[in-house]
Computed example of a mutant assay.
Amino acid sequence: MTGGTMVQTITPELRRWIVEQTAAGFSPESVLDAMVKVGWRQELAAAALEDSLREHRRQRGDGRGAGVAPAVPARSQAAAAPLPEISLSPSLPCLDAGDRQVRVLATLSLPRVVVLGGLLSDEECEALIDLARPRLARSLTVQTQTGGEELNPDRTSNGMFFTRGESELVRRIEARIARLVNWPVENGEGMQVLNYPVGAEYKPHYDYFDPAEPGTPTILQRGGQRLATLVMYLNEPAEGGGTIFPDVGLEVAPQRGNAVFFSYDKPSPTTRTLHGGAPVAQGEKWVATKWLREREFI
């Protein structure tokens, strides 16, 4: 691989080079960094890395490939830090959420996405909407320049936050989420409820906090980096309003009681967790969002 102008095509030679580097003991993260340094776009380099190692494992037929490290690097190669994660079994169509059985509707490995069916009951959805409606205000986003909040033209919804554990309903849902994703209740931010009228949307963005922004150290003092997101659909708009993942061409339709979970092992576009809320074409959309942090959120 050489510097200069590069036609960014994933060739058999590139795939072979990737496999050889990981087989020689270089971590996937270091291989990715090497590709970016010589001019590869980060998103394309990550896709080439993942696809090449997945194909190598498939050809070997042993599920991993001897000497080849996992395709998706953890936040620390020396000691992989845990992440919120839904434990899946191909033999079980439902997950035990303690007080409720939740269906697994779809999964994706990169980005790590799990679509859940029936996480909330119809009654819980209606109760959250009724409690949130009188407390709605124009949605704000985190201001990464300062660590505060700001109005963002990319986010045209109205919203509010429930304080963690503020009611029996909120506590019940938070306990269910914690059991499903194997993550402590106290590591979750307060649940945010959002309302999107016709035309409202949230343009594609990342949920983690950009380490390069000056306000990020202040934000991280409250509980560390965000590691995962759970979006719960409280109603079904007549048209539009899906959750989109542009990097992988995925759209999750908003269906009452269902949810989409996705995690990100580092604050980087290589996680391919770019996502957004598509514009509502008819009706309105209600969602509840739960963000999960590295440690207790205060």
Rank of each mutant, 00 (worst) to 15 (best):
G98D: 15
R295G: 12
H275D: 02
T218S: 02
D265Y: 03
Q143E: 14
G240F: 04
D96A: 13
L292W: 07
E126S: 12
W291L: 04
P28R: 10
S87G: 10
P90F: 06
E239W: 10
V38N: 00
V248C: 08
Q221M: 09
P204V: 11
P28K: 15
A278R: 14
S76C: 11
E149P: 03
A200Y: 03
V198C: 10
T218C: 02
E166Y: 04
F262Y: 05
D62Q: 08
A253M: 11
G3C: 11
L105E: 14
I219L: 14
W291S: 01
V38P: 00
E123I: 02
L227D: 10
L116M: 02
H56Y: 12
G117L: 01
V287P: 00
H205G: 02
T2I: 04
R171M: 13
N195A: 13
P84R: 05
P197G: 12
R75V: 04
Y196D: 07
L53T: 00
Q225Y: 00
R64C: 05
A200L: 08
T144F: 06
P28G: 08
P269T: 10
G215C: 06
R176Y: 14
R293T: 02
L220H: 05
R75L: 03
L151P: 01
T216A: 09
Q8L: 09
P254R: 11
Q21S: 07
L128S: 06
E43F: 02
R226C: 03
Q145G: 15
Q225G: 00
I244Y: 01
L49H: 02
N187L: 01
H205S: 02
F245I: 07
Q42E: 13
F261G: 07
V142C: 09
V185Q: 05
A200K: 00
R171D: 13
G257S: 00
R135I: 12
T9R: 11
E236A: 07
L95F: 08
P197W: 13
I10Y: 00
L274P: 10
L250I: 14
F162T: 10
R60N: 01
T107G: 07
A34K: 13
Y208E: 05
R112T: 09
E150C: 04
L227N: 08
I173W: 12
T163V: 15
H56I: 11
H275W: 03
I10C: 07
E166A: 02
T229L: 15
A47P: 02
A34E: 12
L110N: 09
C94Q: 14
A71H: 05
A137N: 06
E149F: 04
D33F: 01
L110G: 07
A137K: 15
N258P: 00
A178Y: 01
W40Y: 08
R176S: 15
K285V: 05
Q282D: 05
I18Y: 04
T22M: 01
E29G: 00
W40H: 09
S52Y: 02
G147F: 07
W286Q: 04
P28W: 15
P28C: 13
T9N: 08
L83N: 14
L131I: 03
R75H: 10
R75G: 09
F262H: 11
P82Q: 01
